[in-house]
């Protein structure tokens, strides 16, 4: 247990520092909340406008579709709060050689690199996605066990998304300037915001297996709506494990390629 405890303590300090930093820029703090809210609303608005002209898309009606959107927003909310800042910082650190400082610390460098920064302002907005999830869930008439499944499934979706993104970010070691990779990451997120059945056959296979971002939302939501449909979830777990193995491999290769730009 001391290992976990040690990392928990380190993480607490990260959170403390991030809170102190976030609160010292007041306007920025408020604007972040407004920005996220606008983003969520634009996502919902797009789907809502579409359904003013359609009754159903594939197997899902308006309620099911918006429930899916709410699920994705809940995943992205946690993603933005706890992970997303780190990817930008990582590319910056590689380019400027600041990664040196992290490599010197006596703690797992992968942990520091991808979990050191979080966004307290975004955390405050958590009520919104979970409220949405509750609202559309109740419209679908979810049962008690379905409600109980929601939080762990959101976390699972987040875990998969983060794992895939970390694996992709390993390429930053070789690319050095990685704004492009970060944009690619964001485009993959955008891709995952639509249910898998909307895509054509090859796109479904590719983004369900090779770069499995379609599993982030579709697999858990299918499972909630129909607990016999476990195949997606099993794929999710398997591919996530695989991505961890690959990340470990490429991390070591990447460090060998890291040049540590001069001071």
């Amino acid at each position: 247990m001391p290992l976990l405890r040690r990392y928990a303590l380190i993480y607490r300090e990260y959170v403390n520092n991030c809170v102190a930093e976030a609160l010292s820029y007041r306007l920025h703090f408020v604007l972040l909340i407004v920005m996220d809210l606008l983003f969520y609303l634009s996502l919902l608005g797009g789907v809502d406008f579409l359904f003013q002209h359609l009754d159903q898309i594939g197997p899902w009606n308006r309620q099911a579709f918006l429930f899916f959107m709410a699920f994705m927003i809940a995943v992205e909310h946690l993603h933005m709060t706890f992970v997303s800042e780190n990817f930008w910082a990582f590319s910056h650190d590689i380019r400027t050689g600041k990664l040196d400082f992290i490599l010197l610390k006596p703690a797992a460098a992968l942990f520091i690199v991808f979990f050191r920064a979080m966004r307290p302002a975004t955390l405050l907005l958590g009520l919104f996605p979970w409220g949405l999830l509750g609202w559309y869930g109740s419209q679908l008439g979810l049962l008690w066990w379905q409600w109980l499944l929601l939080p762990p499934l959101v976390l699972l979706g987040l875990a998969l998304l983060t794992s895939v993104e970390i694996l992709i970010s390993m390429s930053m070691f070789w690319l050095v300037e990685s704004m492009g990779i970060n944009f690619l990451r964001m485009q993959l997120q955008q891709l995952s915001r639509w249910p898998d059945f909307i895509y054509g056959y090859f796109a479904q296979k590719f983004f369900g297996l090779a770069v499995p971002v379609l599993l982030v939302g579709s697999a858990p939501v299918r499972f909630v709506l129909n607990p016999h449909d476990t195949s997606g979830l099993l794929w999710l777990l398997g591919l996530m494990g695989l991505s961890w193995l690959l990340t470990a491999f490429f991390w070591r290769r990447g460090l060998r390629a890291y040049e540590s730009a001069s001071s």
Partner: peptide, 13 residues
């Protein structure tokens, strides 16, 4: 000026 610590941050907000 900001008082140190978590609550110092909150207060300075």
């Amino acid at each position: 000026h900001k008082a140190p610590g978590f609550w110092g941050s909150v207060r300075s907000f």
